[in-house]
Amino acid sequence: MSGLAGSRTSLRRRLTNLAMLGLCWLGAGLAVLPLVLVLYYVATTGLRALNLDFFTQLPRPVGEPGGGMKPAILGSLEIVGIASVLGLLVGILGGIYLAEYPNHRMVQGIQFTADVLSSVPSIVLGVVAYALLVVPMRRFSALAGGVALAFIMTPIVLRTTEEMIRLVPGSLREASLALGAPRWRTAISAVLPVARAGIVTGALLAVARVAGETAPLLFTALNNQYLNFRPDQPTASLPVQIYTYAISPYDDWHRLAWAGALVLVGLIALLSLLTRLAIRGRALE
């Protein structure tokens, strides 16, 4: 009797099992599907649109076909470069402070601020950078754009640096201190080198994260149809240029937007790959 009931439930259980496991397979498929679609369109449409002009030419006047995104590519490098200098400086040094002086009273407040900052939507950071830099400087500028992006990078770098340093075994620090090395020496030559790979990974991740940001640049770096290397001038960037071209009605600009998207995704994929290599490097040690 009980055996019969048992086998009946067991059949139901087996069916449930199959159905639910099937749904999980389906879920994985659905999760990958949009990626395949997006990458497919970016790759095929982008490749068709990509040519040498794209890298070497300035944008053409409205409605004239041709031209390229040279200013946007170099401008993106410039803005992300500025953001990296600022974000890494503040993030790494601040992170060292948090990890080295965990008992300070203000540490919790700073951690809290970092978490708040990392949850602020990027468009709001653009608004802030506009008010703090563009208006007083009386110029849209690569610097303002870089600062807006640095707002995003700083908390990421800060918290990874802190965590990576905390992961360093306490015995290492104690050994160094016991040998008579001062605290700062210990931090710089004993603790940091061990945490380096982790910090680099965090930094690369942060760079990859901001390289594709558009919203904070809309009213900070603005855009520029000419090459510009001066940090106090409006500067083009790949994401903003893609946005401008995507919402335009011109087919040729759509074509360029796809090419730009391909280059941008390629750059970011490259950064992710570097991150993986850095992680693997750490694993091998």
């Binding site: 170099l74 490098l77 410039e78 803005i79 992300v80 470069g81 500025i82 990296s84 200098v85 600022l86 890494l88 400086l89 690569a142 610097l143 870089g146 600062v147 760079v207 290397f229 001066r230 940090p231």
Partner: peptide
């Protein structure tokens, strides 16, 4: 990467 961009960009920050 930072140096390359920094060269292109000139001075990075106020500091």
């Amino acid at each position: 990467a930072v140096a390359a961009a920094g060269c292109a960009g000139g001075p990075g920050g106020e500091g």
